[in-house]
Nucleic acid binder design. Structure first.
Length: 376
RNA sequence: CCGGGAUUGGUGAAGUGGCCUAACACGGCAGAUUGUGGCUCUGUUAUUCAAGGGUUCGAAUCCCUUAUCUCGGC
């Protein structure tokens, strides 16, 4: 269902902003971090657990649900919320990222994008109209426009061509969007180019979406500067009364830097992917729990963490689970890593209320990087 | 006791005189991972071939001794 974003407060020293919205009689605050549940599940976790971590919106993926089980089945189930037993807000990504990750440039045409079904090799064709139709049926609360997500290495010339086509796709998607309970967000692209970001942002806003996102900053090993520039070049042209969503981010420091620049929503697969590979965030930096030095370490991952994992399990035990490829290990680390990011967002919101987000940032850097962080 | 076969890293093993400072795989150690392919990727891991001696310009590869394992005979 739709909800209204309220801008509550601007931080005194930065562009950071505190906001909120009400959904299903529950109040949610921004900036927030969305856990990713590509295939209608946050990998290894139950909805109750995801909720318990303090999650707000969660993200699901149009492309994956289109292939399996198919939008008709989700629709038959009564929509994505009922299907996956999640009563909070859901945002669906449009499949635009898969244009980057699963298709070649030559497969992209004005009409849409040719894909190979990664499951069975079938030829697939996704268009803006198709993406929106699928999302309408999935019945998520926020649908994303179908965009091209060009690689960071794209030239100014290609990028300009690409953002103009993405704008035409955005318009086509908006024209066919017909779920009255669903919002639709536009996506700003333009790589690291100031003129293109400005153009993309202004033109996207003219199409009048329910919210706006900044894309193309976290898919190709872009530098921090690339990402921060992309945000800085886009934000000034986005309306204050709409949500701003930075797609695919991310890294704890990026959540802080993004918030400082005026971002309201983030999403990222990294906490759960790192968890599956045995890595964990801590106040004093990221650790690899598989490291031999934790064999006999019977202390929690992070003494300062309030999550279920840290309150009940030791590094030695989790290491054992990860080494043995027991799914419970991935579960415990997913719980911890998501909680770590959500707690960070809670701290960020608190710092916006107190007008001291820059202090939070320097304190975080001091602890997390131990003085080895270079601002680029 | 006699005769035959064997012995290469943590594991399975390739290699039968020079391209062996020893293939490949697994494991180990470490790193990567940003709108999720639970896939994966990248480093690294035996200067040494059971031990010792010999032949040779050159030996994991040939010879001898010892040790251990194994098969057959008494």
């Amino acid at each position: 269902m739709k909800f209204i974003y309220n801008l509550e407060k601007k931080e005194a020293n930065t562009k950071a902003r505190l906001g909120s919205f009400e959904y299903n009689k529950v109040k949610y605050e921004t900036p927030m971090f969305m856990p990713v549940g590509t295939q209608a599940t946050v990998k290894t976790l139950s909805p109750e657990e995801v909720r318990g971590l303090g999650s707000g919106i969660i993200l699901a993926n149009t492309y994956h649900l289109w292939l399996r089980p198919g939008e008709d089945i989700v629709s038959l189930a009564g929509g994505l919320h009922k299907f996956m037993n999640w009563d909070g807000p859901i945002l669906t990504d449009s499949g635009g990222y898969q244009v980057f990750s699963l298709a070649n440039p030559k497969d992209i045409s004005e009409e849409g994008v040719k894909f190979k079904n990664y499951l069975n090799g079938d030829n697939l064709f996704l268009t803006p109209e198709k993406s929106i139709a699928i999302q309408n049926k999935l019945d998520s609360d926020i649908a994303m426009s179908f965009d091209e997500c060009p690689p960071a290495s794209a030239s100014h010339e290609y990028m300009e061509k690409s953002i103009k086509r993405t704008l035409r796709w955005a318009k086509r998607g908006k024209d066919v969007h017909n779920n009255p309970n669903q919002m639709l967000f536009g996506i700003v692209q333009g790589g690291p180019y100031e003129d293109l970001r400005k153009f993309s942002a202004e033109e996207t806003v003219k199409l009048d979406f329910d919210g706006y996102s900044i894309g193309g900053v976290a898919n190709d090993g872009e530098s921090k500067k690339y990402m921060y520039d992309a945000i800085d070049f886009s934000i000034p042209y986005l309306p204050e009364d709409k949500l701003r969503y930075l797609m695919g981010v991310g890294d704890p420091i990026d959540l802080i830097e993004g918030s400082i620049r005026g971002i309201d929503i983030f999403d990222c697969v990294i906490p759960t992917r790192l968890a599956r590979h045995g890595h964990a965030y801590t106040k004093y930096g990221k650790i690899n729990v598989k490291n031999a030095k934790y064999k006999e370490d019977f202390s929690p991952i992070d003494k300062t963490c309030d999550c279920y994992t840290c309150k009940n399990y030791t590094k030695a035990y989790i290491r054992h689970l990860i080494v043995c490829e027991e799914t419970f290990g991935a579960r415990l680390l997913s719980i911890h890593n998501i909680r770590f990011l959500i707690k960070l967002m809670e701290d960020i919101r608190e710092s916006i209320k107190n007008d001291n987000i820059l202090e939070l940032k320097s304190e975080f850097i001091k602890n997390y990087y131990g003085g080895n962080y270079e601002e680029k």
